[in-house]
Design a protein around this nucleic acid. Structure first.
Lengths: 221, 221
DNA sequence: GCAAAAGTGTTCCAGATACACCCATGT
DNA sequence: ACATGGGTGTATCTGGAACACTTTTGC
């Protein structure tokens, strides 16, 4: 038992984990095994331990659910309306993470619940206020694509310009002109040729590029 | 006494309260009366009550310290490193607020501690990790001035274009061209003439403007 | 009539947009 | 040789930046 002179809320982290697959933006959900919202899908998350920082807690949960570490993770917003959890007062610090398309080898759920990737336009009904969290994450993601190099966080270590363009087109839901896109993205000077080429299909091989500073997200314009 | 099966952190809100005075960006600090950091300056804030939302808690603290309500308030970031408060684990949801220059009539401190406005370039040493919070708030403020109509939140109900320009110049710390500024700000179509004029000093009176949607902050460009 | 801030237009430059054909490869 | 996606250049438009003089008022 832990005693306090004043009441304390419980504190959790929840994570919107994005990846791109089959030219679709997807996020990871977990089927709840217990009450409340039993059987509903929810964002991965959990309680913050007393000896770990908030980002640390988010990275721990991220790794528990996906096995990945070292990916892009950003604090989104903190939700704490009384009543958002029917059991007790729970405040959650929400984060979002971007996983490169070549790092998806999710361990089939640590907690033995069902885990699944859902296209952002085909989400099931979510537990708690999680659809509000997802909505805010999506808004942030779209906004940041426009004024930062965030999109590069989705790329594998080597990629073609066409693949990069598809990332933008998928998330922003609009087609772009190939020549203008290439001029723009190369002018950023944030990627460079690797010297390798990708040979596939009966057509000209594509030059492969890499991100110059893989960890880094810069503001542009 | 309140008992929990698992340990819970304490939860607070802290607020960076900005205003403009004498063409200087200032924020409100409170001198701590008790330990820890006794005698140091700190951001206004306090514990979140169990029956109030996070924004509600922030607005309550804001009103307790300044007497103002209905001003712009935005969640900034949540800080929760273990050890940021030496007494117990405290997680704080940080906010920032903008107070129009005509609404500053701070009640001389509710909690009987000293309260004061400090220019952002003349801040004293701060308690806890509050200088980190202030730094982040300032970065957000400057960034948002560029891509939103946030600056209008500092304006009184009627103002001249010169006054508005001074707000931008003060916060961004750079001079602007009068003609370009006016063209730009009028093209936003977010302010309109009131029909009144401000007469003062031995020169031509200035047209007065008002914000069309006083509560609203829009993304621009 | 003079001091002081208000108000106003044009030119120039850079970055974004629109747009169509040739290239390298596999079958 | 043909099908497939890779790769490239130019003209135009638009929004931002630079820049100086006239107007209205109080004293």
């Amino acid at each position: 038992m832990f005693n306090y002179a004043y009441p304390h809320p419980a504190l959790t982290v929840d994570i919107v984990i994005y990846t791109l697959r089959n030219a679709e933006l997807k996020l990871l959900l977990i089927k709840r095994g217990g009450q409340p919202y039993k059987g509903k899908w929810a964002l991965p998350g959990g309680f913050v331990q007393m000896d770990e920082g908030l980002e640390e807690a988010a990275r721990r949960e991220l790794e528990e659910e996906t096995g990945v570490s070292g990916v892009y993770l950003e604090q989104l917003y903190t939700f704490g309306e009384p009543g958002r959890d029917p059991r007790e007062r729970v405040v959650t610090v929400a984060w979002y993470a971007l996983i490169p398309s070549d790092q998806i080898h999710i361990r089939a759920a640590s907690d033995a619940e069902a885990v699944g990737w859902f296209g952002v336009d085909e989400l099931p009904e979510l537990a708690f206020d999680h659809s509000q969290i997802v909505q805010m994450a999506h808004k942030r993601l779209v906004a940041k694509l426009d004024y930062s190099t965030l999109a590069f966080q989705f790329m594998p270590s080597e990629f073609t310009l066409t693949q990069l363009q598809q990332v933008y087109e998928t998330i922003l839901q609009q087609e772009m002109d190939k020549r203008n896109f290439r001029k723009w993205v190369l002018a950023l000077e944030a990627i460079e040729e690797t010297g390798h080429k990708q040979r596939e299909g009966q057509h000209r091989p594509a030059k492969l590029y890499r991100v110059k500073n893989p960890g880094r997200v810069d503001v542009i314009k």
